[in-house]
Design a protein around this nucleic acid. Structure first.
Lengths: 102, 102
DNA sequence: ACCTTAGTTGTCCAATAAGACTACTTTGCT
DNA sequence: AGCAAAGTAGTCTTATTGGACAACTAAGGT
């Protein structure tokens, strides 16, 4: 199930309005420099792929649904260890990280 | 320049001894489940590629060399925003993240 | 319309990272 | 051997996450 609160401005919508549409130069620069905003969406996407609710993910990861909600909406500056735990224990997945040097 | 303190057991060496050699089943499992241990090495590698000292990286990233040292040795559970800042502002690079679901 | 489930938001406290500073150790150079 | 630079480690304070809980909103089903 994919429930969305209609009265809540989605992050994508917010960014579209505030930064500019995808493909615009400003938006590209923003996405390159601040991909932090994608970590929440990444987790949400993976969670939905696994068919889990926030509540279920929270239990698997040893936390609570309110925290998961905040992380998915990037309202929390997550610690690396917590990110790992959510992905490994919660989603049964694996975090891949690399650094691109220009 | 690649300076290494000889009396300090390197992380790789430590893991070799405690977990097992690379390629062993136990080591593989460890690396898959806990790749957190690689984030420090990743930063160090990128820093050396850019020819920066810990001091220089620290200044660029708005922190201090002692913190960089701790992060590279995985003695700190870094926050996501801090990781971003070190990579973007310090290394002038870009963090790539993805999640593998089994 | 009602009920249940899912998700969001606010508040609070304890645990811990961030940051600054100092001192020590190691390395490389002359 | 002596010096300077690089890196490591400890301590302290402050800022903020992690985690728990309760209350609220939205969506779907009956």
């Amino acid at each position: 199930m994919t429930v969305k609160n209609k009265n809540l401005k989605s992050l994508d919508q917010f960014i579209d309005e505030e930064i500019g549409e995808k493909g615009s130069k400003k938006r590209d620069r923003f996405e390159n420099e601040y991909d932090a905003f994608r970590i929440g969406a990444l987790i949400q996407q993976a969670r939905e792929q696994k068919g889990l609710t926030q509540q279920q993910l929270a239990e698997l990861a040893g936390t609570n649904k309110s925290y998961i909600s905040k992380v998915e909406r990037n309202l929390k500056d997550i610690r690396f260890s917590t990110l790992q735990r959510i992905i490994n224990e919660g989603l049964g997945g694996q975090l891949n990280i690399s650094i691109n040097l220009e």
